[in-house]
Amino acid sequence: MNFSWMAWTLPTALFFITIALLLVGMGIWEYVSPGGNPRIGILRFETTRGDRLFVSLLGSAFIHLAWLGFGGGQHLWWALALSVVYAVGVFRYV
């Protein structure tokens, strides 16, 4: 099967593989510890760990967009580092 029309590149492939691995990881986590661990965090509404992953990924996307918009696309690894810190914060406190 030829997927050249999808114009794959190594970075985008790695990006989607990471997302897929995150989802598989969440599936395994749910299998080991069912129920989604619902709790009310600092945002004052109930979130499961799936919600927290969604908030982490969406927030990370906007951190990267803000970095690109205001920083001109330089040193994008800092945006990634900031996103990881943000995601840890979300999983810890939200």
Binding site: W5, M6, A7, W8
Partner: peptide
Amino acid sequence: MTVVNYSVQDT
């Protein structure tokens, strides 16, 4: 996925 791939390339 295809749109993401296009967004980092020129054609």
